[in-house]
Design a protein around this nucleic acid. Sequence first.
DNA 1: TGAATAAAGCAAACTCTTTGCGTTTGTCAT
DNA 2: ATGACAAACGCAAAGAGTTTGCTTTATTCA
Lengths: 192, 192
Amino acid sequence: MAIKEAVRPGGRSARVQEAVHQAVRELQAVKTRDELTVPQIAERAGVTPSTIYRRWGNLSELVADVSVERMRSDDDPADTGTLAGDLLAWGQQYLEEMVSVPGQRALNDVMASADSERRERCCRYSESLMEALHDRAISRGETPPPVRRLIDGVVAPMTYRLLYDRDSATAHNLQRWIDCTLKEGESGVASH
Amino acid sequence: MAIKEAVRPGGRSARVQEAVHQAVRELQAVKTRDELTVPQIAERAGVTPSTIYRRWGNLSELVADVSVERMRSDDDPADTGTLAGDLLAWGQQYLEEMVSVPGQRALNDVMASADSERRERCCRYSESLMEALHDRAISRGETPPPVRRLIDGVVAPMTYRLLYDRDSATAHNLQRWIDCTLKEGESGVASH
DNA sequence: TGAATAAAGCAAACTCTTTGCGTTTGTCAT
DNA sequence: ATGACAAACGCAAAGAGTTTGCTTTATTCA
């Protein structure tokens, strides 16, 4: 039951998709996750339930599809002048978004999706962002740790805490992760 | 729809729970996640569907309940003589388990659970294990980094990769995370 | 042992999901 | 432009899962 990538992106298909997504977003604002139903969404979007079932498979995949969009931050990360600053700025905003009630729900929805490809896509967002910050740091003349280290040192702990131990997903800890990750390679960057 | 903690743990209740869990495990061995149904499980367990619905709420919570048990490794972590060795031994086994098909499914099931308390419980397993290894290291005379660092440095990246980028959840990377985490504090352990 | 009550069984009502078939509507080639 | 083709949707009925009120069973506690 994979989600069909718009084979036919023209008019109606796109309109339906947008209407359904919109309906989900509106209903999510008013209802708990397990009060949501496909028929409800269908009615609000002005389509029949079978359309939704055929296209998305089931409710979980649909809400995951909507949520993963929400997670893609549209605007470029702020340029604070240093990698440390950029990481902090981005991380703080990300944390704030994800500890919020809608943020947590979005996380849940994505994690609940059977489609692992979607989960991966969602994490690619963070990764490509790290790449961007990394490149920016280099063009400034900094000597940042490799992207992999940024992910393991900053993104991973943050994500881990968000998923498993929300209370410790704080800006204070974020600062610590950043410090730790950047400090680490200072004396000798080389790693085979 | 929280799972009721056995208010009345005596005979029948426990028997039903065990029968249902067992039925889930058996059926999981033969069927895909989305071929599983509550009525099916109920029949196999010799109970009525309503029993399951009243006790677990829905299929997701039930399978999550079963999976979280599977994730608790029952036996003590091997003592290899050093913290680095212990971490590696544990991590390798954990990785192996979690990249497997049933392991990935268990992970998915737990993540899909609406009950965040259960997710937290599942991560407590790793944390208490880190504590155990940490204490063991101390009693050996080693000077290990704080538990928090073990989690952020080893468990978090491992979990992150397992969830989002399975292919990079390898023993080789595990080694790197361990090295990195243990090396880091060598020169000066103090952090306010 | 007996009263109180949690938990399970049963069955009917209800809601969601699936599916076949006909219709609409983009898409592509002529 | 125009017509053939195929994708996506609507409709409605059949099928399956879920919820709920009431009854029965069996554990707990006095």
